[in-house]
């Protein structure tokens, strides 16, 4: 009886010590889940999810506050990846999936008000007050946040078309039924 209790107690002590050691040794700074979710999000920083940027949305998902289907730029593929990571159910996207876009400023109409410059979450618009602005296309995430603030409506979104360098080989598809 006494030995049994002693053995159990000893076991508890050893396991407790091991757990304590592990918690010190393998202490994780920050929330790694947020980083992993953030890595899946497309970083358009568009706020379409209702959060001011991808990181806040990632935090909200990690907290369990936000659903995983609220990121239209990430598309269904993003939803699937998030579902995989978090072990949640795949849900249809909350909004319509859009092709990748880039913002274009009509330089004839731009009045140089800098409102779009301030709206851009990734500093992809250059231009000073009363000077014409322009979008650095390679940095633009297509978030559309600059479209609305423009007082003269000189910004529009354009679909990014495939060029010879970004062209992809297609998934091979054969009409297997045709033969029968």
């Amino acid at each position: 009886m006494i030995t049994a209790i002693l053995i159990m107690a000893l076991g508890a002590v050893i396991l407790g010590a091991a757990l304590g050691y592990a918690s010190v040794k393998f202490k994780v700074q920050g929330n790694p889940l947020v980083e992993k979710i953030d890595a899946i999000l497309p970083q358009t920083q568009c706020g379409q999810c209702g959060y001011p940027g991808c990181k806040p949305y990632a935090e909200a998902i990690a907290e369990g506050e936000a659903d995983i289907n609220r990121c239209p730029p990430g598309g269904m593929e993003g939803v699937r990846k998030l579902a995989d990571l978090l072990g949640r159910e795949v849900k249809p996207l909350d909004a319509e999936e859009k092709p990748k876009q880039v913002a274009i400023i009509d330089e004839q109409l731009c009045i140089g008000c800098t409102l779009c410059v301030q709206a851009c979450p990734v500093d992809a618009i250059v231009g000073a007050a009363k000077q014409m602005h322009t979008v650095v296309a390679s940095l633009c995430t297509g978030c559309e946040l600059c479209v609305k603030p423009c007082p003269v409506e000189c910004i529009h979104m354009e679909r990014i078309v495939e060029n010879i360098d970004t062209w992809k080989w297609k998934y091979p598809v054969f009409e297997i039924k045709r033969v029968a």
């Binding site: 953030d38 999000l41 497309p42 970083q43 358009t44 920083q45 940027g53 991808c54 990181k55 979450p121 990734v122 500093d123 992809a124 390679s138 940095l139 995430t141 970004t166």
Partner: peptide, 17 residues
């Protein structure tokens, strides 16, 4: 390519914040 772009966007977003 997408990953690179996303990483760049994230960095710029954080810098801006």
């Amino acid at each position: 390519r997408e990953k690179e772009n996303a990483d760049a966007a994230r960095e710029r977003f954080e810098l801006r914040n």
